[in-house]
């Protein structure tokens, strides 16, 4: 379980997160929802130890982030983070070199699933293919938790569909997935948990199926209630 407890974060004098708390469980898809600039990416970076926090605590299966956990949690940022002059093949080799949990069979499978070409240079990829390569580099790690920042934003419809198919496949089975989005429509029925954020705080955290069962409300219904009052 990823536990985020009362996390505060400031950039200079500007408070970006003011007491954010939520959990993301293994075997579930949790989704941080909020408009751009509410601190979704900052939360992701904080979980990965890529930016310091000023208060609160973040634990992954009871442990604070350290180098060993990078074999347990993978982060897929919203842009590809491999050097542009690398080819896809070289990027895969780099990952294989550095991660004990790199699953080569899965990487091959994803390469053909996404129809990507090993010899293509990263700088030459279309936005959709860059996003898929970025996904591949995270998904081919045998990690327990996957963090994905805005996996659907800024790419064409067909790439979106392909990436959405990842969420209905064995690729994420039994893993804990935490994604951020500012656009819930495409994936509303895919997520197990929704965490609604606004201006650095969590407004509501709920399991989507439970809420549908008990109150007959969709995620969008809840968002309407929460954000418009």
């Amino acid at each position: 379980m990823i536990e985020v407890t009362s996390v505060t974060k400031k950039y200079g004098r500007k408070k970006v997160l003011s007491g954010v708390s939520f959990t993301a469980d293994k075997g579930q898809i949790s989704c941080l929802i909020g408009i751009n600039g509410v601190g979704k990416s900052t939360i992701m970076k904080a979980i990965m130890g890529l930016t310091p926090i000023q208060g609160g605590r973040i634990l992954i299966d009871g442990q604070p982030i350290d180098k060993h956990l990078y074999e347990k949690v993978a982060f897929i940022p919203d842009t590809i983070i491999m050097p542009p002059q690398m080819t896809i093949g070289e990027a895969l080799l780099f990952m294989k070199d550095f991660y004990a949990r790199w699953n080569e069979g899965r990487a091959e499978e994803l390469l053909s699933f996404f129809k990507l070409n090993r010899d293509d240079r990263i700088s030459d990829l279309s936005k959709g293919n860059a996003a898929k390569t970025n996904m591949l580099l995270g998904l081919a790690l045998d990690v327990d938790y996957l963090l994905m920042d805005e996996p659907f934003s800024g790419i064409d419809m067909f790439s979106r569909e392909q990436i959405a198919n990842v969420f209905t496949s064995h690729l994420i089975e039994d893993r804990g997935v935490l994604i951020t989005t500012h656009e819930i429509h495409d994936i509303e029925h895919l997520i197990d948990k929704a965490v609604l954020l606004d201006r650095g705080t969590v407004l509501k955290e709920f399991l989507t199926e439970e809420l549908r069962l008990s109150e007959g409300k969709s995620v969008v219904d809840v968002m309407r209630e929460v954000y418009q009052t």
Partner: peptide
Amino acid sequence: GALHINPN
């Protein structure tokens, strides 16, 4: 996969 739903 067929119904495009989450495996859970």
